[in-house]
């Protein structure tokens, strides 16, 4: 399994005022792997995602995707390089239909211009049609067939999570950042999500960087697990290695029942 590195962060530092959110983080995400980031609440996990998307300027360090430096790109440019993401607290376009949500995800791949839309050129119409078909296919892929015309905010919670992933998939990303995809799901629903995420890696060849608190999910499917505490990497390795690491147990896992 000698894979190439897809995403690499080099001595990444992010400070908010006096608060150090991420301290000198080196992260190496290999192609076609599921790489998890775990850690106590407030350890800076979501901040890592925001840094990768460049939602705010990083304090120092470097982020590279397939060798290309992402530091100076705006988030929309980062997106065009092939990074899609979902959000911890589900951020769908709530007043748009499920289908429209996915079609916004295709924004960078659709080529039609606004004057093309007004003049109804053949190219625009064909482009729109192809996009729509693709969106319907994606809906089916995530198990939301027939729900495309429902407003996103009217979908049940689980469907919203799926739709958010479908929207990210519409970008045809190389790297998918998933922020707690099984939050609020019971164990059997979580298990379905695990199967689904594995499928993304195995069938679509997408590399996955995952933030998650459900230990069965993390341990069950990750190739590599990175543990953050107070913005510092305290452990990294295979799930088995991390699970037994004393520092991880002390700071994060605890000895109670929650990690069963």
């Amino acid at each position: 399994m000698a894979q190439n590195t897809l995403l690499h962060t080099n001595a990444l530092v992010k400070r908010f005022g006096g608060l150090v959110a991420i301290d000198s983080l080196d992260l190496d995400v290999k192609e076609r792997t599921i790489h998890s980031i775990i850690g106590p609440n407030g350890a800076g996990k979501t901040t890592v995602f925001n840094c990768i998307m460049n939602f705010f300027p990083i304090t120092s360090g470097e982020i590279r995707l397939s060798g290309e430096r992402l530091n100076d790109l705006t988030p929309d440019r980062v997106a065009t390089r092939g990074i899609g993401r979902t959000y911890q607290n589900i951020r769908l376009f709530r007043n748009m239909s499920a289908l429209e949500n996915i079609m916004v995800g295709m924004h960078i791949h659709l080529k039609s211009s606004w004057w093309g839309a007004v003049l109804r050129t053949r190219r625009t119409l064909a482009d729109e049609k192809a996009g729509q078909d693709e969106a319907v296919r994606l809906l089916q892929y995530v198990g939301l067939r027939g729900k495309g015309d429902i407003l996103a905010r009217n979908l049940p919670y689980g469907d919203q999570r799926r739709l958010e992933i479908a929207r990210a998939l519409a970008m045809k990303p190389k790297l998918l950042l998933l922020d707690e995809p099984t939050a609020g799901m019971n164990p059997s629903e979580s298990q379905d999500m695990v199967t689904f995420i594995r499928g993304l890696r195995d069938e679509l060849g997408i590399t996955i960087l995952l933030i998650e608190h459900h230990m069965p999910v993390v341990m069950g499917m990750s190739d590599i697990v990175t543990v953050l505490d107070h913005g510092v990497k305290i452990s990294e390795g295979t799930p088995d290695h991390v699970k037994r690491d004393k520092k991880v147990i002390e700071a994060y896992l605890g000895t109670g029942v929650a990690h069963t």
Partner: peptide, 30 residues
């Protein structure tokens, strides 16, 4: 959205709260 170690703590505190006579109705995926 809580780390496993915190889940333990939160559920311990829920029991503490109950000991003070509070009635608790709990909705939970876990």
């Amino acid at each position: 959205g809580l780390a496993p170690i915190l889940v333990d703590q939160v559920f311990e505190s829920i029991q503490d709260i109950r000991k003070q006579g509070v009635t608790i109705l709990l909705v939970e995926q876990n």
